[in-house]
Design a protein around this nucleic acid. Structure first.
Lengths: 219, 219
DNA sequence: CCCAATTTAAAATGCCTATTTAAATTACAA
DNA sequence: TTGTAATTTAAATAGGCATTTTAAATTGGG
C-alpha cells in the first residue's frame, strides 16, 4: 500500500490554493481552469484528474479556504460563553473583520462573488457552514437589544453589521481598480476598522434598545 | 386621436430600459445583446444601429437609469441647506436607501456588479457623477463628527453607512436565490429599513464624536 | 525493476458571442 | 402620391476560448 497522502497532496494542495485565490478574484464563471493550473504550476488536465470537474474544484477550494481561515481566526475569539453578550458580539465582529481583511483569506471573497453572480453551486455548503454562525449572531443581537426587540429589529441590526463588514471586502477588492481617485479609501488598517465597526455598531444597537424600552414603558 | 395611454415607446428607449435591467441583473459580460433585444422587442441589430456597440449601450443605459432615479428621489430630499447637519445626513441616507430599494432602480445594481467584476468602462462616468455626492456626504459627516474628527474617522463612518445601504442591494438581489432558507431576511419594507439605518448610524456617529471629544479634553 | 499513481501535451468537443451586410419596411415631407 | 431617409429585419460573418478527454510519458515506492 503506497502512501497516498504525502507526495500526491502537493499538486492537489497547490490547485486548491490557487483555485480559491482565482475564484475569489474572478468568480466561478470568469475563472478559467487554465489560469488556475498556471498559478498552481500544474498541467491543465490535473484538475480533471484530482477533482472530477470545475464545479467540484469550486466546492473543494471554498471548503479548503474556509477551514483554514476558521482555524486561524476562531469566531468566538477564545471568549467564555458567560461573558457579557456585548463583549461576545464585539469579539465576533472583530473575528469577522479580520477574516475578511486578511490578504490571504478568500472564502468571503468567494461568497461575495457568489452573491453578485449566483451560481447556486455553493448554496448547500453555505447553508450548512455559515447559517450556524448567523444564528449565533442573531442570539447575541437579541440579548444586546433586549428581549423586547422585534425580529425585524434583529434582522436590521444584523444587516447593518454584515453590511459594514462586507464593505471592507468591497473596498479591498477594488484597491487596484481605483474607482474614486480623489478620496482614496484607506481601510488597510484592518484592526482599526474592526474596532470602529464594533464601536459604531454597539452604539447603534444601544440606541435602538433604548428607544424600544422607552416605547414599551410609555405605552 | 391624441395618444392616450399606449404611445409606443421609441425602440431606442425600450433598448435603454431593457439594457439597464439586464445589465443590473447579469453584469456587462454575462448580459447578451440578444437577451436585451428580446426584452426590448427589438431586432438584434438595433443595438448596433442606435448605439455603436455594446459598450456604448452600457454607458448610455447607466446614465439613463441614473438620471431617472435622481429625478425620482432628489438626494437632498428637498431640504434647506441651513438645516442641521444631522437632519441633512438623515435625508441623504433615506434618499439613498429608497433609490437602492426601488424595484425599478438599476443604476446602483449596475454599480454593484461593476464593483464585483470591474470592467473599468464606467470608471470615468462614476467619477464624474458619483464623486460629488460622496464629497457632500463627507462634508456632512465632518460636521456631525465635530471638527476634531480625523480623516480616517470620516472615512470609516462613510464606509459604515454605505455598507449598510449596499447590504440592502445585496439582499434584494439575492431574493430569488434564497441562500438562507431558514431565516429569510425581509428587507422589503424599504422605508422602515431606511429609518433603521438613520437611527443606527446617527447613534454610531454620536458615540464616535463623544469619544473624540473626551479624548481631546482629557489630554 | 515493476507497477500503479501521477503528470504531460495535444486534440476533441462544444458552445456562444458581437458585429456586419444588404434587403425590406416604415415614416415623413414635398 | 411619391421620393427619400430612417429604421427594422433576417441572415451571414468571424472570432474566440473554455472544459474535457485521450493516450503516451514519467515518476516514485516496494
Amino acid at each position: 500500500m503506497p502512501n497516498l497522502k504525502t507526495k500526491p497532496e502537493k499538486t492537489r494542495t497547490r490547485l486548491l490554493t490557487a483555485a480559491s485565490r482565482i475564484f475569489a478574484e474572478k468568480g466561478f464563471q470568469d475563472a478559467t481552469i487554465a489560469e488556475i493550473c498556471g498559478q498552481a504550476k500544474a498541467n491543465i488536465a490535473s484538475v480533471n484528474y484530482h477533482f472530477r470537474d470545475k464545479e467540484t474544484l469550486y466546492l473543494e477550494s471554498w471548503r479548503f479556504a474556509f477551514n483554514q481561515e476558521l482555524a486561524l481566526y476562531p469566531p468566538d475569539g477564545g471568549l467564555m460563553n458567560d461573558a457579557p453578550a456585548e463583549q461576545q458580539l464585539a469579539e465576533r465582529i472583530k473575528s469577522l473583520v479580520r477574516r475578511i481583511g486578511d490578504e490571504n483569506s478568500y472564502s468571503f471573497a468567494i461568497i461575495h462573488k457568489e452573491m453578485a453572480q449566483p451560481t447556486r453551486l455553493l448554496a448547500d455548503i453555505l447553508e450548512k457552514e455559515i447559517n450556524p454562525q448567523r444564528l449565533q449572531m442573531f442570539a447575541l443581537l437579541k440579548e444586546c437589544l433586549g428581549q423586547a426587540a422585534s425580529e425585524q429589529q434583529i434582522q436590521y441590526c444584523h444587516a447593518s453589521i454584515m453590511g459594514q463588514c462586507f464593505q471592507l471586502l468591497r473596498l479591498k477588492h477594488m484597491q487596484g481598480a481605483r474607482p474614486f481617485r480623489s478620496h482614496p479609501s484607506d481601510l488597510s488598517d484592518t484592526k482599526a476598522f474592526a474596532e470602529h465597526v464594533v464601536q459604531f455598531s454597539l452604539a447603534g444597537i444601544q440606541a435602538i434598545r433604548s428607544q424600544t424600552i422607552n416605547l414599551k414603558t410609555s405605552v
